[in-house]
Simulated scan of single mutants.
Amino acid sequence: MTDALKRLSDEGVAIWLDDLSRKRITSGALGELLDEQHVVGVTTNPTIFQKAISSGDGYGEQLADLAARGVTVEEAVRMITTADVRDACDILRPLYDSTGGQDGRVSIEVDPRLAHNTAATVAEAKQLAWLVDRPNALIKIPATRGGLPAITETIATGISVNVTLIFSLERYREVMDAYQAGLEQADAKGLDLSSIHSVASFFVSRVDTEFDKRIDALGDDAAEAAKGLKSKAALANARLAYEAYEEVTAADRWKALALRGANAQRPLWASTGVKDPALPDTLYVTELVAPNTVNTMPEATLEATDDHGEITGDTVRGSYAGARADLEALAKLGISYDDVVQVLEDEGVDKFEKSWMDLLSSTEAELKRLAPKEA
């Protein structure tokens, strides 16, 4: 355990790894991260699985068995991904037990092609929870319009949820409302609220990428005025999200649920790998330190924080006025916040869907290659 990562954890930030592969599981590398770098959770997404399975490392035997059975490519992908998540859940189970279910979590996402279909998303969430069959699994549901009621319905069944692809402050408030509505319905059914957990994955670096692209496209005079605003939007957005979290958890509605044993839906900082090489590679870690949050990091960001991250305490609370000023200044330049976050949501769903289709395609090719030859 390193000093920087320990300090981060001591400040109330749960460190999760944004990656998973069969090799990481079987080699013991995942266990080492838990023991040595204070990692207490794992997140996955279609892009992560596409890269892992396409590498072929560790999946040959299972693919050959699936090919021999003649399963569909859809079934093969689900069998492979849920096996990885199940094994990772087993590795993290001691953390789940020792933290009362708060950490030791592994996330798996519903088929991204269902992102706008409420009923199908709920059905898929139930199926994934059944397939993984581990109490420390989190089912990831995107925060699309169709995803919001799916979040409520899934929580109401007692399934814990990682809400993903949140970019806007308005949508984040809707996510928190959907979670509370699900808890209220679960309570009405007599379910134990203390067994239901959720995180809300608020995406960070992609916000700077899109805002900075639009700043660069401004005319010369405006671009000069905007220089000081580059790479400010993502942190401002995330910090105001935490302010919203504080407001919601201070309200009477939440207090009533908490008295019934409900767990707060922690803000999770996602997409924390820096996209612009000119920025500090730990920017979205050191500048988003606040109690009761999660930061899910790609391994490169985890290692950078381990090596030279400077954790100076809470860098979120007390920053709200400056964050609002930064977003207001960008709006005065004619850059539409609403348009940026909608573009990012649409792109996020499209990127995950493309990764899923690539995964299906590469898995199908392997199944055909390994299929038993006819006599």
Rank of each mutant, 00 (worst) to 15 (best):
I48G: 02
Q50E: 15
V199F: 05
I155T: 03
S201H: 05
P291M: 04
R171N: 01
K354Q: 13
Q265V: 00
L370I: 00
W16T: 03
P291F: 07
L302V: 02
Q50H: 11
Q50Y: 12
A52M: 11
W269R: 06
N117Q: 14
A115F: 00
D346C: 05
A223M: 15
K126P: 05
E184V: 06
S319C: 08
A200H: 06
V40F: 08
A225L: 13
T249H: 12
L367S: 11
T152A: 10
K351H: 12
D3K: 14
L183Y: 01
T26I: 14
D350N: 12
R266T: 01
I151E: 12
T293R: 05
A120L: 14
L8W: 13
L148V: 05
D216R: 13
V163A: 08
G104E: 09
R239F: 06
I166Q: 09
V340R: 01
L257R: 08
G70D: 05
S98F: 05
E109W: 10
R173D: 14
N136T: 06
S361K: 14
H38I: 08
A150E: 07
D111N: 15
G158D: 09
T272S: 02
D90H: 12
S194D: 05
S319Q: 15
V175K: 01
T249P: 00
A64H: 09
S205Y: 00
K232W: 01
H38F: 06
D97Q: 15
P372G: 13
A137L: 14
L193E: 11
T82P: 03
P277W: 01
G190L: 06
K140I: 06
A226L: 10
L169H: 12
E32S: 15
A258C: 03
L327A: 06
P267L: 11
V163W: 09
V274Q: 08
P94E: 06
W269I: 09
A217I: 00
G12S: 13
Q127Y: 13
G322L: 03
K332P: 01
K373T: 15
L5S: 08
V199L: 09
L148Q: 06
L359T: 01
A233E: 15
